[in-house]
């Protein structure tokens, strides 16, 4: 709705703080969100023992010190590219998430940017599975692609529904439109589908079959040392970033009484993380070949109807 002016509240983080501090801030936020997700996940998996919160840090140190093992005739170039791409894409997806009321970049197509970073994960995860020249890892990679075919379209429709409500693809405009009423009220289906898709593109929880125990942890099976740390950290950051994005798209961003905006934003993000983990860890792992049928027969029509409903609300002048 607002013009892409670069002054006042429409200013990007990069313009307000300078590029380097802004990039560092986004990197730090990625780290905080990733650690937060991993810690909550660890606590929930261990059955609520708070001491387990340090487990991700302990594993990270272990992987840092661990010597990297390799396989017979790996495709090293592609393997490393995939391993590095996972965390890089996770951080890049945060570039359009409003942190402290501002996004690092404000493009005229923020939602598509977020979606593109997630789509590039398809290539990255497939490369991680392909690189080591090992069967379980490759099976995991193809499972991820099959899962991708299932979640991608509902995710796109969920994202575009939020954009539709705001009449803009900019995250800042979407947050501004929710001043009176959070989007989760008028587009609950899109909200749930978005969170489920986040779990699916991080192949976590009920969507972890690409790294499933039945195929010796699939795409993760041949990763060791720093490689494993990078991919695990990337997955945690992806989930943290998606939680933060869901707050901007559906839960009114940083709006709330009393506390300053960034605090509200962080609180809501942590709450979403807690909900994703406690619900996600209670659902059994779904098989991609079964989920794809559910997704195409139920989720795609549901998200399309949701988009239609929101389009009618837009035409009736429901949104400011």
């Amino acid at each position: 709705m607002t013009d892409p002016d670069m002054g006042g509240t429409g200013m990007t983080l990069a313009a307000a703080w300078g590029l380097l501090p802004a990039v560092l801030a986004v990197g730090l936020t990625a780290l905080v969100l990733g650690v937060a997700f991993a810690a909550v996940d660890s606590v929930v998996v261990s059955g609520g023992r708070l001491r387990s919160a340090v487990e991700p840090l302990r594993s990270s140190l272990h992987w840092l010190a661990q010597q990297r093992r390799t396989t017979l005739a790996p495709d090293r170039l592609l393997w490393r590219s995939g391993v590095i791409a996972v965390p890089v894409l996770a951080v890049l997806s945060l570039a359009v998430v409003p942190i402290g009321g501002r996004t690092l970049l404000s493009t005229s197509a923020d939602l598509v940017w977020f979606n593109a970073m997630e789509a590039l994960l398809w290539a990255a995860v497939w490369l991680v599975g392909w690189g080591p020249n090992a069967v379980h890892s490759l099976v995991g990679a193809y499972r991820f692609l099959a899962q991708g075919l299932a979640y991608e379209l509902p995710l796109m429709f969920a994202l575009i529904t939020a954009g539709l409500g705001a009449g803009s693809l900019r995250t800042m405009d979407i947050v501004a439109t929710q001043e009176n009423l959070w989007f989760v009220v008028s587009m609950p289906v899109a909200f749930v589908v978005f969170l489920a898709s986040a779990a699916a593109f991080a192949f976590w929880g009920p969507f972890a079959s690409p790294a499933g125990a039945d195929i010796a942890s699939g795409v993760m099976s041949e990763l060791s040392g720093v490689d494993r740390l990078l991919v695990q950290a990337g997955r945690a950051v992806v989930l943290g970033a998606a939680a933060a994005m869901s707050v901007a798209l559906f839960l009114g961003g940083g709006s709330g009484p009393g506390l300053p905006e960034p605090v509200w934003y962080l609180l809501k993000t942590l709450l979403v993380i807690a909900v994703i983990v406690s619900v996600g860890r209670r659902i059994p792992v779904t098989r991609p070949d079964r989920f794809v049928e559910f997704s195409w027969m139920i989720l795609i029509p549901a998200t399309l109807l949701q988009a239609l409903w929101v389009a009618l609300l837009v035409l009736s002048g429901f949104y400011p």
Partner: peptide, 21 residues
């Protein structure tokens, strides 16, 4: 041309991944 740029990246990546399938 931000939209065209990100949509090119998005579509081509998915296209290449599906080519792998």
């Amino acid at each position: 041309l931000t939209y065209l740029a990100v949509v090119t990246a998005l579509m081509m990546t998915i296209e290449m991944a599906i080519m792998a399938v």
